[in-house]
Design a protein around this nucleic acid. Structure first.
Length: 482
RNA sequence: UCCUGAGUAGCUCAGCUGGUUAGAGCAUCUGACUGUUAAUCAGAGGGUCCCUGGUUCGAGUCCAGGCUCAGGAGCCA
């Protein structure tokens, strides 16, 4: 018997009339004769043709949707129209039965909501097969991009004692018996008796630790899980998500933006090359989905076109102040179509404003820089106040159509006095972050970095609408199934 | 967390101003057919109408509370 060959390789095979063995899961079994077999190596199925007149009835009954089978036979040019080649089966073995009365995946369309409830089986659908192959490629491409540029992959801690950054609510990590934690004399929980002898939590960002690495290794990046205990119920937020956080010594904000834009283009290009078939399938899927929508809500470009457009055009770069001017003069603002009218300078942009800039005004990815100081984090480098006394920081957010903020970054404040002054203003405890401040005491230098939300990237590249569909097992409020 | 909408067969849904035996398509099963591609044709089985309480002679339908899901907002990546 020949060795198992994956379906992807089989379909790419130049030879026919050769003996092959394929193994996979039955998608459909039509006409007692044609098995559509998939093994996850590619979006396409291989058609297995069964000589049903000379095959045991009992065996035929066991070839059901979802069953795992092994097929040995001859790869031949297909007699049918839907495929180039097919396998004429000589021998079929059912490796794992699948009771069709109980198997939840039927040979029909299923809603994404239903598939979310059976996330352990949704990998077996064409859509999720495509999504997770693309996700894999994007992850690999990210490492390749940084490795090619001499960045060091730095593993920052998952458990940390610093919740001072203010990036969001944290999940507590403790070894205490929650029904009966040790208390201090004043009745508070006594963390000095806990595993780490202090209160700890799951990381909300590896940035601060990343900066420590960059201050010796020059260019580092992290790529790991991140946790936020925010009660966020949206299509763009997860309680557990993966984040890429590069941090570069001797970079200013422009270098930072150049790197982020190059990274995004590189990984999108990689996925387009590597997963052409999957992206083609996802493009079709999105097109079908958009047919359900009214004409004016459909997007002008297909998924494939959007991705290509992203590669072919420079991202639009402008300052927060310039963006406010555009929004103030915009038609929806003048016609009072915005739910939140654009008036003063200094407040954060609402989703509808970002959407307008990206999807209506520029119609391409946008990088906003130099946000007001009071709406941004303490570690961002402070600009000199402008003529009218407006105080800004060297921040940059990259906004993508349909996604919103995909990257958030900044040049970091490397001047100790400025940093300490800002921490005092914002009530950030300097003593807890003594190690962070040490980098500003010893060999401080200009540096910058950003955070890229991996799932948001996957959302964009796959054209999916809900972030819970681009991570294998999503974690969100009231759900930690699987 | 807030706003809006939804929860009826395995899935997607219909079910009128409350009324007696709750329907359809797909899926499944049985049979026929046998080069199919969402196969086709004939037949069959399949229901905690989300939960709790209330109104009523009578509730899938009305009311209250709760749970869950979806979309939008906020928080952000």
């Amino acid at each position: 018997m020949s060795q198992r060959i994956k379906i992807k390789a089989l379909l790419e095979s130049e030879q026919t009339d050769i003996e092959v063995t394929v193994k996979g899961w039955v998608r459909t079994f039509r006409n007692n004769q044609f098995i559509a077999l998939n093994d996850g190596s590619t979006n396409s199925n291989i058609q297995v043709v069964v000589d049903f007149e000379n095959t045991d009835q009992a065996l035929l009954k066991r070839i059901t949707t979802g069953a795992a089978i092994s097929v040995s036979g001859i790869l031949v040019a297909s007699l049918g129209k839907g495929q180039k080649v097919e396998v004429k089966a000589k021998e079929i073995e059912v490796l794992g039965d699948s009771d069709p009365e109980k198997y939840p995946l039927q040979p029909k369309k299923h809603s994404l909501e239903f598939l979310r409830e059976i996330a352990h089986l949704r990998f077996r659908t064409s859509t999720f097969g495509a999504i997770f192959r693309v996700r894999n490629s994007l992850a690999f491409a990210i490492h390749q991009f940084f490795q090619e540029r001499g960045f060091i992959y730095l593993h920052t801690p998952i458990i940390t004692a610093s919740d001072a950054e203010g990036a969001g609510e944290t999940f507590h990590v403790t070894n205490f018996d929650l029904a009966n934690p040790p208390k201090t004399e004043s009745g508070e929980i006594d963390f000095s008796q806990d595993f780490f002898a202090k209160a700890t939590n799951l990381t909300v960002s590896g940035q601060l630790e990343g900066e420590l690495g960059a201050m010796a290794l020059s260019d580092i990046y992290t790529f790991g899980p991140t946790f936020r205990a925010e009660n966020s119920n949206t299509t763009r937020h997860l309680a557990e998500f993966w984040m890429i956080e590069p941090e570069m010594a001797f970079y200013d904000l422009n270098d930072n933006m150049d790197l982020a834009e190059a990274l995004l283009k590189y990984v999108i290009k990689y996925a387009l090359d590597k997963n052409a078939e999957d992206i083609e399938f996802l493009t079709q899927r999105l097109q079908e989905e958009e047919k359900q929508k009214p004409q004016n809500e459909r997007s002008e470009m297909s998924l494939l076109e959007k991705l290509q457009f992203c590669l072919d055009n420079d991202f639009e770069r402008l300052t927060y102040t310039e963006a406010i001017e555009i929004l103030r003069e915009s038609t929806p603002n003048k016609k009072k179509k915005f739910q939140y009218p654009v008036e003063g300078w200094g407040t954060d942009l609402q989703s509808e404003h970002e959407r307008y800039l990206v999807e209506k005004h520029f119609k391409k990815p946008v990088i906003l820089t130099d946000y007001p100081k009071q709406i941004k984090a303490f570690y961002m480098r402070q600009n000199e106040p402008d003529g009218s006394g407006r105080e800004t920081v060297r921040a940059m957010d990259i906004l993508f159509p349909g996604i919103g903020e995909i990257v958030g970054g900044s040049q970091r404040e490397e001047r100790l006095e400025k940093l300490e002054q800002r921490m005092d203003e914002m009530g950030i405890p300097k003593d807890e972050l003594w190690w962070y401040l040490d980098t500003r005491r010893f060999g401080a230098c200009p540096h910058a970095g950003f955070g890229l939300g991996f799932e948001r990237l996957v959302l964009f590249v796959t054209g999916m609408g809900n972030i819970r569909d681009v991570i294998p097992f999503p974690r969100f409020p009231k759900n930690a199934e699987f």
